[in-house]
Simulated assay, not measured.
Amino acid sequence: MGDKPPGFRGSRDWIGCVEASLCLEYFKGPQGRLCHVPRGAGLQGELERLHSHFAGGGGPVMVGGDADAQSKALLGVCLGPGTKAFVLVLDPHCWGAPKTPTELQIAGWVGWREVSTTFDSNSFYNMCLTSCNSEKQLPTQD
């Protein structure tokens, strides 16, 4: 695509959410909308956006950070009373033949995680919200 040096091709180097959104556009995949969260503690303020995204039929949300290098794919959000909230996290390293939901949960590939303990409050995060429909692009957050 031209955004990386020539030595990147064929390497095992990682890409982030920004590059993933570029790939989605380049390969005519689902629409990707980027959202930058300067600190993990700020994710609490993005829960309504995530809830609206999923409630409106939005697809998986790719998440990557700097201090928190554990990539995540969000598949849902559950807003509880007060500030308690959970996200349904899929480990994007999961591979192989589809298994039952129970097997995936037992193996730790997918599960509900509390937001306050899943994200590093000092790490920034980029989220790429995917959508197969032609929903209006929301502006990215700085």
Rank of each mutant, 00 (worst) to 15 (best):
M1Q: 13
M1S: 15
G2N: 10
D3G: 11
D3T: 13
F8A: 11
R9H: 09
G10E: 05
S11M: 02
S11W: 02
D13W: 13
W14L: 09
I15T: 14
I15H: 05
G16Q: 06
C17W: 00
C17D: 13
E19H: 15
E19N: 14
S21G: 11
S21N: 05
L22F: 05
C23G: 13
L24I: 11
L24R: 06
F27K: 13
F27S: 12
P30K: 15
R33S: 09
R33N: 10
R33V: 04
L34T: 10
C35I: 07
C35H: 14
V37T: 10
P38M: 11
G40E: 00
G40H: 00
G42Q: 08
G42L: 12
L43V: 03
L43C: 13
L43G: 01
Q44E: 14
E46G: 01
L47G: 02
L47R: 01
R49L: 07
L50R: 00
H53G: 11
F54R: 08
A55T: 03
A55E: 14
G56S: 12
G57R: 03
G57F: 01
G58S: 09
G59F: 00
P60N: 06
P60K: 10
P60R: 15
P60Q: 12
V61G: 05
M62T: 01
V63E: 02
V63M: 03
G64N: 12
G65I: 04
D66K: 07
A67D: 04
Q70C: 10
S71G: 08
K72Y: 08
A73F: 11
A73T: 08
A73S: 07
A73V: 14
L75W: 04
G76P: 04
G76R: 07
C78N: 09
G80K: 04
G80I: 07
P81W: 04
K84H: 05
A85F: 00
F86Y: 06
V87R: 00
V89I: 15
L90E: 03
L90D: 10
P92T: 07
C94S: 09
W95H: 08
W95Q: 10
A97H: 12
A97L: 10
A97T: 09
K99C: 14
T100K: 13
P101K: 07
T102D: 13
L104T: 11
L104V: 08
Q105T: 03
Q105R: 13
I106P: 05
A107I: 00
A107E: 06
W109M: 14
V110C: 15
G111H: 10
G111R: 06
E114N: 03
V115Q: 00
S116M: 01
S116H: 14
T118N: 09
F119E: 00
F119T: 01
D120V: 03
D120A: 12
D120W: 02
D120H: 12
S121R: 10
N122F: 01
S123R: 08
S123N: 06
F124Y: 09
N126K: 00
M127D: 01
M127S: 09
C128R: 05
L129F: 08
S131A: 14
S131I: 08
S131F: 12
Q137N: 06
Q137I: 03
L138I: 04
P139L: 12
D142T: 02
